[in-house]
Design a protein around this nucleic acid. Structure first.
Lengths: 208, 208
DNA sequence: GTCTTCAGATACAACTCCGTATCCGAATAC
DNA sequence: GTATTCGGATACGGAGTTGTATCTGAAGAC
């Protein structure tokens, strides 16, 4: 059925990966403490023995999962979100609306809550976020390439603003609040086109 | 030490409230499944007996906590966030930045994750969100009262947009990403001043 | 003042989960 | 082909958690 690996190293790598995948599903469905090692291994098609010969503890599995998510999210998901087809803000908004529940985001939030007891997660989270922000900053200019005045700082600022909006939308969706695509699109373009002038303007304008 | 209530009803109400407060701390610190009834009751200064004579299960306590949070957040926290002193967007942004970790938001996210196993949470979440959105919609006009063309729909739209941005910022902060106050301020005013024209513009503008 | 009721404490039984210790069988080395 | 190594399975002890069942002391009724 599944193409069986041959060498021991390949075999174990596959086992390890399946455990990580299963853990992601369990974690997002039941939370970290809510997930049991038995449930994870069973979902992956193994027993507890397989788990303990690959990881020392549940926390270590979480760390491994975080590291795995960093790369795959930046490589596979983000590009469709900011670049390419989504250079149109409205398209990006629709893409956001159609996305399946924000698994990695919820995972990140959970990891953040576990920082106190598992300090090693701190680096994982930080790495993930800076990776995402850098990626967005790189892709951003394509959507507004007619503006040559962009400093790296400005791009970074716009990137963070964009990520903030995207995150907000995803959380709202997770909380069953509908934000209609045109609103999302408007927010996205506002974030992507932030300029120092805008920022100056805000305080005086709102101050009436 | 603590002013002791007299009647049974008052006494029990106090106990119940203390259990709810303790539960909130435990839940936000360790998550729902991560918290034990023993830890909650002990933190509140009671034993398991007190718990089971006030709640049928941990899930019921969570629901009670959610209901309690709905009112207190809308009454006590939100006003400082959108109205009054914060009619200045920059002030609102700073207020956001200074806020302690977004306890009720994290609680809400956790509750959303538990929807599948506890369907009654669905109504709680929905009630909370619509309450917040309505509140923002009511307070909003004060900040931009010179615009008389506001339809209820537009106000609702702006309210949702604002809440989206606020939520995004709070999550970013929880994930240790700094979004500087001026950026937040710019996003907030953009959200608060959304107009149908903006929305129309986005698609064509971004489409180049 | 006596009796009743009930909030909360204590004790207990069943269950679940974790981690280790032991075992098995198939790749690797020779 | 035989010996060895090691990924993964099985078995078990121990700790922690939940829910119930029973008990107690003080508030309320009369």
């Amino acid at each position: 059925m599944t193409p069986t690996r041959r060498t021991r190293a390949e075999q174990q790598a596959q086992t390890r990966q399946r455990l990580i995948d299963a853990a992601e599903q369990e974690f997002t469905a039941r939370g970290f403490e809510g997930s049991t090692i038995d449930a994870i291994t069973e979902r992956a098609g193994y027993t507890r023995g397989a788990f303990y010969s690959n990881f020392a503890s549940k926390a270590e599995l979480l760390t491994a999962l975080g590291a795995h998510r960093i790369s795959s999210f930046v490589r596979d998901v983000l590009p469709g979100m900011v670049g390419d087809d989504a250079s149109d803000a409205l398209a990006a908004a629709r893409w956001l609306a159609e996305q399946t529940p924000a698994t990695e985001l919820l995972l990140l939030i959970e990891m953040a809550r576990l920082r106190d007891t598992n300090p090693e997660l701190d680096g994982t989270i930080r790495g993930f976020m800076s990776g995402v922000i850098e990626f967005i900053a790189e892709v951003l200019p394509q959507a507004g390439s007619e503006r040559p005045d962009e400093t790296p700082q400005l791009r970074a600022m716009r990137s963070r603003a964009l990520l903030t909006v995207v995150t907000g939308v995803r959380v709202m969706r997770h909380l069953d609040v509908d934000v209609d695509p045109s609103t999302v699109a408007a927010l996205l373009t506002a974030a992507a086109n932030l300029s120092p002038a805008d920022v100056e303007a805000t305080s005086s304008e709102a101050r009436r």
